[in-house]
Nucleic acid binder design. Sequence first.
DNA 1: TTTAATTTGTGCGTATGTATT
DNA 2: AAATACATACGCACAAATTAA
Lengths: 235, 235
Amino acid sequence: MKNQTLWQGIASDLEKEIVAGSLARGSRLPTESMLSQRYGVNRHTIRKALSHLAEKSLIWSKRGSGVFVMQKPTIYSMGERVRFSQNLLDAGRTPSRQKLSLSQRLATHEEASSLKIKKNSKVHHYEGISFADDEPIALFHSVFCSKRFPALAEYIEDLQSVTQALKKCGVNDYIRASTYVSAVAASSLQANHLRIKPNDPLLCTTSLNTDQSGTPIEFGRTYFSGKHVTLSYEA
Amino acid sequence: MKNQTLWQGIASDLEKEIVAGSLARGSRLPTESMLSQRYGVNRHTIRKALSHLAEKSLIWSKRGSGVFVMQKPTIYSMGERVRFSQNLLDAGRTPSRQKLSLSQRLATHEEASSLKIKKNSKVHHYEGISFADDEPIALFHSVFCSKRFPALAEYIEDLQSVTQALKKCGVNDYIRASTYVSAVAASSLQANHLRIKPNDPLLCTTSLNTDQSGTPIEFGRTYFSGKHVTLSYEA
DNA sequence: TTTAATTTGTGCGTATGTATT
DNA sequence: AAATACATACGCACAAATTAA
């Protein structure tokens, strides 16, 4: 480990602290000024080291706020009932969602056949970003039959929860009927939203939820950041 | 595209020149000093922009030499006769190889069964890096039956070519019998050799070459950098 | 609600080290 | 051996976002 530059030494030093746990996951690092004093180097040198750790997705920074240690990959359970918020709470994370769009449009062929509705039926299209502790971990978009759930959009808008909105529509429970998983590379747009790099691996799940009678309710795709999420298929 | 910082504007400017072709693939960029004069900014600002383009694998820099535009992905043909050098020459690239190791050891079960030799037979193990225009594009390792080719190692050492070394051993032609392709994430060691980031996608090919009579000659794996190589299966 | 302090981000200037030409 | 070109590092100043008073 000789012949290291200053920033390389500092970066590997901080990395050791992170993997050892003395810098806890999710915690805030000392400020750049603090670190530059501690190591006796210029702030730019600290920033170069931090930049390297950020590239490796070990930390992420927020202007005006601080630099934070990335959380461990989230284990996302894919059982019969898939509930975003509960999954994250179970993993000890704080869930939140950001709406990107919520509108009505005509169903695609794939959507119509999956939902078992007529082609060119109107559907609610809900699209957004899922966060865990302010870290984006997934992009989702799903469609619901407008005819069956006329007021769903308003409920989602108010409640910020698909599960709660569906309850308002009389659907007290829904079941994951099928899930397909594939691996794709992130587009630049997706990468931007998920704060990762383009072409980073994404887990793409295509899923269909039905009510208890087996009638399709929701069809959608979710792109999980491969760095942050591990899908789990345990019973 | 408003509200851009200086380095962002310069980076997107240079990126446009690269994709448009006015900065040719493989060519050298103006020096950082030149660019800082051209754009009327400090050299550090140029370096920040270049650093961003390097992260996107659009350019790469060599200390003391210059900054170069990355080559296009290499179309690597996987026809009946797979020849590393000829493939690259066909693609207009300059091929070279760097030996990492060349030694003898016992064949693994997989290698022995593929080469149709007895288990625990000795094999030549040849491992290295393939370059195109000084850019590493693949890691390879392959094994040959030591009993059949006793002097192969010396020939490879001298000739730096598997095809030529095999000719010295009396194999004037060999044929790709089978190729399996999968996608894996780069280990840190692989990433280091290929100048990419850990977990970047690699194309892993497992292949078996035989002579004209169908007798196995060479069994090996090659890990292509997904950024630089596209495998082609055209006839 | 407004203000002030804090913290990260951008940018310039300078100097020196190191590898290549 | 000398010039060139990228890499590292220090110091200063200000902008932009956040947070706390």
